[in-house]
């Protein structure tokens, strides 16, 4: 199943109970504290379920995960 911007925002908004609709796609989520490590772990589990692909430990980097745009790019590469 493809990860869309809408499904990703819906997941993150539900987990953080924050309105992320106005967050820029390139805004830092993890390093800025909008998304904490607990929620990021949930995001990883969700990504694995959505893409059906197991995430390699070496893929868990700020480069891959720190914004909506980066997460979408990473998900589409799976």
């Amino acid at each position: 199943m493809a990860v869309t911007r809408e499904s990703l925002l819906a997941f993150l908004s539900k987990r953080t109970r924050a309105d992320l609709t106005k967050v820029d796609d390139t805004a830092a989520l993890f390093s800025s504290g909008v998304v904490d490590s607990f929620e990021l772990a949930s995001l990883m589990v969700w990504l694995e379920k959505q893409t059906g692909a197991r995430i390699n430990p070496s893929d868990i980097t700020v480069d891959n995960l720190d914004s909506i745009a980066r997460i979408l790019a990473y998900a589409s590469s799976r």
Partner: peptide, 20 residues
């Protein structure tokens, strides 16, 4: 299984944060 996987990710994040 999901709970265990989430735990593994938590450990990986800590390692990522530690390396930063």
């Amino acid at each position: 299984e999901t709970a265990r996987r989430r735990y593994e990710f938590g450990l990986m994040f800590n390692r990522m944060k530690g390396s930063q």
